[in-house]
Computed example of a mutant assay.
Amino acid sequence: MAGIHFQFGDFKQLLRLNIGIADRLDENRAESFTVLYCDFSEIEDETINRALKKILRTSDTIANYKKDYFFVLPYTDKYGADIVKKLFDKFFKKFLNTFLISYPADGESAEEITEILQTSVKRFCKRDLDYLDVLK
């Protein structure tokens, strides 16, 4: 299994797509999907690729900017996304710098989700994600 990798420039569009699907299919508006941010800055590319193939489902999507990885996990709440995070921790044998944000509980639009993600990652992970500002 492995997630589907998208170009980073399409990240906001990927969020919009998942919001549209969730709004159409999830009438109770539970945590329809969760975005898992992971800082893989100290991990080699080949090791990252092996982990992605082993851990992610084919329905999961990936966008990365350098070693900052964003996983959109459909029909996954924060508890489920935390399990994915722990699988990465175990695979890499280290505690990763991560953050979770769910739709619609934490944000109602792609813009709101990326804004909250930026603010939260800067505060809790001490990582600057200002490059998200240039996405359309």
Rank of each mutant, 00 (worst) to 15 (best):
M1D: 15
A2M: 14
A2W: 10
A2P: 09
A2Y: 14
I4Q: 08
I4R: 11
H5P: 12
F6W: 13
D10L: 15
F11A: 06
F11W: 04
K12D: 07
K12F: 01
Q13A: 13
L14F: 02
L15S: 00
L15R: 01
L17C: 09
L17E: 14
N18G: 01
I19D: 00
I19S: 01
A22E: 10
L25N: 13
L25H: 11
E27Y: 14
N28T: 14
N28A: 09
A30C: 11
E31F: 01
E31G: 02
F33A: 02
V35P: 06
V35G: 03
Y37L: 03
Y37K: 01
Y37T: 00
C38I: 15
C38E: 09
D39W: 02
F40V: 07
F40N: 04
S41A: 14
S41F: 03
S41T: 12
E42C: 09
E42A: 12
E42N: 12
I43K: 03
E44G: 08
D45T: 13
E46S: 10
E46M: 10
T47M: 12
T47G: 06
I48K: 06
R50H: 11
A51T: 02
K54H: 11
K54I: 07
I55T: 00
T58A: 15
T58Y: 14
D60V: 08
D60Q: 08
D60C: 08
T61G: 03
T61N: 10
T61P: 02
I62P: 05
N64A: 10
N64Q: 11
Y65Q: 09
D68L: 01
Y69F: 13
F71T: 02
L73V: 00
P74S: 04
T76K: 01
K78I: 08
Y79R: 13
G80N: 02
A81H: 07
D82V: 05
D82Q: 15
I83T: 10
V84K: 05
V84T: 08
K85Y: 11
K85G: 06
K86G: 04
L87T: 13
D89N: 15
K90E: 15
F92R: 01
K94F: 02
K94Q: 14
F95D: 13
F95I: 13
L96V: 06
L96M: 08
L96T: 08
N97E: 07
F99I: 10
I101Y: 01
S102M: 06
Y103V: 03
A105M: 15
A105R: 15
G107K: 02
G107A: 13
G107M: 05
E108I: 14
A110T: 00
A110Y: 00
E111G: 14
E112Y: 03
E112C: 00
T114E: 02
T114V: 15
I116G: 12
L117M: 14
Q118S: 10
Q118Y: 09
T119Q: 12
S120Q: 10
V121L: 03
R123D: 11
F124E: 11
C125V: 09
C125H: 05
D128W: 00
D128F: 04
D128S: 03
D128Y: 00
D128E: 09
L129Q: 07
D130I: 12
D130R: 12
Y131K: 05
Y131D: 01
Y131N: 01
Y131P: 01
L132A: 03
V134N: 13
L135C: 04
L135I: 07
L135D: 00
